[in-house]
Amino acid sequence: MTLLWVVLGAAVGAPMRYLVDRAVQSRHDSVFPWGTLTVNASGSLLLGFLAAAPVSAAVFAAAGTGFCGALTTYSTFSYETLRLAQDRSHLLAGLNVLGSVVAGLCAAYCGLLLAQAV
Score class of each variant (00 low, 15 high):
A52C: 10
A41P: 03
L47V: 14
G64R: 05
V59Y: 01
A61R: 03
G66Y: 00
T38D: 09
A63R: 04
F32P: 02
A61I: 04
T36G: 08
W34K: 05
A63S: 12
N40Q: 10
V55H: 04
G35T: 08
G64Y: 05
A63Q: 03
F49C: 05
T36A: 11
T36I: 15
V24M: 07
S26C: 07
P54W: 03
A57E: 15
L50W: 11
S26E: 12
R27L: 10
S44W: 02
A51N: 14
Q25F: 01
G43I: 09
G48Q: 12
D29A: 14
L46N: 05
S42C: 12
S26R: 15
G66H: 00
L37Y: 01
T38K: 07
G35M: 07
P54H: 15
T65Q: 02
T36R: 06
V55Q: 06
T38H: 06
P33H: 12
G66K: 00
R27M: 08
A57M: 11
H28I: 06
V55A: 11
D29P: 00
W34G: 03
R27P: 00
T38R: 08
D29V: 06
F49M: 11
L37M: 14
S30W: 09
G66N: 00
S42G: 03
N40R: 08
S44H: 04
F60T: 04
V55C: 10
L50V: 13
L47I: 15
G43L: 12
L47A: 11
L46W: 04
R27S: 11
P54G: 15
A53F: 11
R27N: 09
A58M: 13
F49I: 08
S42N: 01
R27F: 01
V59P: 00
L37W: 11
A58P: 08
A62P: 01
F32D: 02
S56V: 10
A70K: 02
F49H: 08
A52G: 13
A61N: 07
S42W: 01
A52F: 12
A52W: 05
T65H: 02
L50G: 09
H28D: 00
A23S: 14
S44C: 15
A61T: 03
A53N: 08
V39I: 15
G43V: 10
G48L: 12
L46E: 05
W34H: 15
G69E: 06
